[in-house]
Amino acid sequence: MRAGSVQRKENTMVYKTGEKPGKGSYRCLNCGQVVELKSDDDQLPPCPNCHHEEFEKIA
C-alpha cells in the first residue's frame, strides 16, 4: 500500500491529491469525474470539477 493511501470497504484503494499512484484513470469519490494520469511520475490533482481530493483507480 502506498504511503498516505487508505483502504475503503470492499478493498477499494483510495488515492489522495498529491500522490503518484501510477499511470491510469482515477474517479473522484465525490462527483465521479475521471482524471487521467499519463505517466507514473504524474501527481493526482484535485478534482477539476468539484476540487475533492480522494479518488479510486478505475483503469
Rank of each mutant, 00 (worst) to 15 (best):
K20V: 15
C31Y: 08
G22N: 14
C31L: 09
Y15A: 09
K16H: 13
C47F: 10
V14T: 15
P45K: 00
Y26G: 06
L44D: 05
L29S: 12
P48I: 03
D42S: 09
R27H: 02
P45Q: 02
Q43E: 15
E36H: 08
C28I: 05
K20C: 10
D40V: 07
N49Y: 06
G22H: 13
L44R: 06
L44K: 05
L37Y: 01
P48A: 06
P45G: 00
E19N: 06
D40K: 12
D41W: 00
D41R: 03
C31R: 08
T12D: 09
G24E: 00
N49D: 04
C28A: 04
Q43R: 10
V34R: 12
C47I: 11
D40L: 07
V14W: 07
K16S: 13
C47L: 14
S39K: 15
P21D: 04
Y26A: 04
Y15R: 09
P21K: 07
M13F: 13
K38T: 09
L44A: 07
Q33A: 11
C50R: 01
L44V: 04
T17M: 04
P21C: 07
K38P: 01
P48V: 04
V14M: 13
T12F: 10
G18F: 09
G22S: 11
G32T: 11
N30I: 00
D40M: 08
E36T: 08
V35I: 06
C50V: 03
V35G: 02
P46F: 03
K23V: 13
N11S: 15
V35E: 02
G22L: 13
K16G: 14
E19Y: 03
P45T: 02
D40Y: 09
S25R: 14
Y15P: 11
N30D: 02
